[in-house]
Amino acid sequence: MLKIEGFSLSRENEKFMLINEMLIGSGMRVNIFGNNDTGRSLLLRSIHGDYYNFGGQILIKDKPLLFYKKKKKTILIDNISHLLMNESVWKNIIIPLPKVTVRQKQKILELCMTSQLGDKIGNKVKTLSSSSKKFIELIRAVIQLPQIILVDDFENYFDDKNMITALEICNFALNSGASLIATSKRKLDNFDTHYRIQDNKVVKL
């Protein structure tokens, strides 16, 4: 699914976030953890195709990122809230969907129930907690069945209990062949593969 080779980021002639090779297969849950200012967010943005100032190459299904420029197959959930605060939970979830099929509708309702949003589906988003808001973004991402879901600072929004719920939600997309790459400051449980950022290098555990 995802292949990263010879990847590096640069800051004032100093290279960091060095990745010799990273292979992530379909349906995998990958956690990349490390301290602040180690380049976690930039790595995700590079995979997403929002940041180009990096060395090496990133291939998704053996094709370079340029191939996906006009048909993005990754969804990035970052620290900024990408929601319409005065709109309902439902409206926010279906924003990117060209047409909501019956199956998608059922699945959205099911995922909302899982994330305790079932009875709040008509509520305005501004009345919800930050974790509920991130659940909305997560449900919106998985329902589109992208190739890769990228989540920055995964543990920022969820406690341990909600983290399990969030991974449960992700399972819907993972079972359809998507991969999940989540960054965090600490090592997270319930992930298939872990990468640690140490001494400017990304090391597989």
Binding site: K72, H82, P96, E137
Partner: peptide, 15 residues
Amino acid sequence: NVFWKIYHSSGGQIG
């Protein structure tokens, strides 16, 4: 503009 920004960041169709 805000709607479209959210639309694109949420994975909406490019273009």
